[in-house]
Design a protein around this nucleic acid. Structure first.
Lengths: 346, 346
DNA sequence: TTGAAAGCGCTAACAT
DNA sequence: ATGTTAGCGCTTTCAA
């Protein structure tokens, strides 16, 4: 087994000191162009690559980014957060970082639940995706580590976030239904304490108002504990078991609940979209396989992860970087469950 | 910002040398029990944790495991390999390893496609999931790195693998159909060069033969380039566009192709399972949402990842560990697409 | 623009 | 059972 190539091998072969070679491998200035060229050539010849742990020890940096997910997000069947993770992984490569993923409990109770990569100083910054207890954000701030939140924010915390344009998404949905002639539009929201859900709900109300459509409280189901398929099912049951007039369309705050809503309506013999139009949000895979195929709002999950990494790397390289909130765009995907074709003219 | 706690802080406070502390943090023998207890106590008090990069440099080990996926597996909608990855992540924590994930092209062409974690000696072992070019396996062997393959194997290579019990899975499927009265059973295989698919195909033939059911070549579609939904669609078209007798059941080598097959049959007005029973393999999420719900074979993806990590850690700690091939069990999941209820008696 | 040298925090021989 | 010490391979002053 042949010995590993070190910086000293390169220096020796180039007839230079290791410090000059180090300057070059780190793209630092103040090196003669010709020297740089020559050393780069030798590095290539020798197949030299600086060893991560040596570099880490000397520079007190790990070259890693920590990615934290709560356990329930982690084990979800629908790969929403997985896609975000893959986005971070991909972008991290462009910046020569590795992603270390771990899951944690909802809230930081005692200190031996702290991810090992934090204890061992093995990350230079952290990304957290999804709703999580504020104690985690506090802890990471205490460690003086750069932090980005994806698809979540905390009101009283100064922290950079990457989210999606929830308001525009719902606006597109409601306006599309309205163009299709709908004026009786309900809403299934689930956990409105989640900032994204809250925004979607607010946008639903705003867009109805702006369009002169009245908001009927009986057609609104919010406040379920969660935002899963079964929550959507229960919400639909609530709305459609009422006496009196029924909505002709229901906007759901995400696809999972939309699927649950459809399940209930199918079971009770309500035709979709004939009797009731359904629209979701998130564009999950399952929406493509259901009958009728679900109209929804597409979210760029990978891109959200990618942007989070770019922001985080900026913060790592320049600790004075300012707080940012980035919104990724969304777009309406018209399929069959809303009964309104894209080309309806107004 | 308070200084980081180092092993010297612990040693000083304990009135001992750093080497004794090191012995203790590494769970080495030859330390007085009382000393150990005392130092552990101090470590806890101080909140000390050995820094990964320092440890790595001194011991020439990274504490990381590399996870390699081909680009096409990585970007698949269905999170088959993602689930495997999550399984490795989870198990890695139990052994104090981190997982570094990366994707590569199908085959190793030139050396600047080599994952950075290999170049920088930043992993102690490698897991590869799914079909991949043999050049990658060769390269990793050259680096003298422990390696495990998941859901793949290479005939002429000495390498440990973790797979699933494909033969038993198909056997269960075929026997179940037979108990339901089926004797005209087709097969859609796709890329039979993949070892798992090849095993499933072989088991289909073997089980038919063993049950005295004749194998009809017109009902078998194998050799498509891939194993995706559209391959299943094309395969179904091939089988059901023939003149002559048709099968009353089709065994598909995976769920994706089963879904494609169902799509074709639905479009051509064939009732499932009334006219033709369909069974898949893998138990992907989408099989639950299709109408009728897909009967399939469940595969423990997370467990496969977990086992791979355990094997790999054994190899890392004991380079003389023997070659192993581990099969994870599978089970038949009877749903609606096969028209045969679980309790059919024979 | 380059070199010399002092660590970074830990492990592992070797000595005691 | 514990201590001494020499690195691991790199970055980073500081000096030349």
């Amino acid at each position: 087994m042949k010995r590993k190539i070190t910086i000293r091998d390169v220096a020796k072969k180039a007839g230079l000191s290791v410090s000059t070679v180090s300057l070059i491998t780190n793209n630092k200035p103040n090196v003669n162009d010709e020297t740089r060229r020559k050393v780069l050539e030798i590095i290539k010849q020798l197949g030299y690559h600086a060893q991560r742990s040596a570099r880490g020890l000397a520079s007190q940096s790990s070259g890693n980014i920590g990615f934290i997910l709560t356990e329930d997000h982690f084990s979800q069947a629908e790969p929403f957060y997985t896609k975000i993770f893959l986005g971070t992984e991909f972008e991290a490569r462009n910046h020569n970082f590795y992603i270390l993923l771990t899951t944690v409990g909802w809230t930081l109770k005692d200190h031996n639940q702290v991810p090992r990569f934090l204890l061992e100083h093995n990350v230079d910054g952290v990304i957290i995706a999804g709703k999580i207890g504020a104690s985690w954000v506090d802890y990471i701030h205490e460690q003086n580590l750069p932090l980005i939140l994806i698809d979540y924010e905390l009101p009283r915390h100064r922290v950079s976030t990457v989210g999606m344009d929830n308001r525009t998404g719902i606006k597109l949905v409601v306006e599309h239904l309205r163009r299709g002639g709908h004026t009786k539009i309900g809403f299934i929201g689930g956990d409105v304490h989640h900032p994204s859900i809250a925004e979607r709900f607010a946008s639903y109300r705003d867009t109805l108002s702006a369009g002169g459509i009245s908001i009927v409280n009986q057609w609104i189901a919010v406040g379920e504990a969660n935002t899963s398929l079964s929550d959507g099912y229960e919400a639909a049951k609530k709305i459609f078991s009422m006496n009196g007039e029924r909505p002709t369309a229901v906007v759901c705050a995400n696809d999972a609940m939309a699927l649950g809503c459809m399940k209930f309506l199918k079971e009770t013999g309500v035709a979709i979209p004939g009797d009731v139009a359904i629209v979701g949000f998130d564009n999950i895979e399952a929406g493509l396989h259901v009958e009728p195929r679900l109209t929804t709002v597409n979210v760029h999950r990978e891109e959200m992860g990618g942007i989070a990494v770019r922001r985080l790397v900026e913060m790592i390289k320049d600790q004075s970087a300012v707080l940012t909130k980035t919104l990724t765009p969304v777009e309406l995907i018209v399929r069959d469950s809303c009964g309104v074709k894209e080309d309806v003219s107004d």
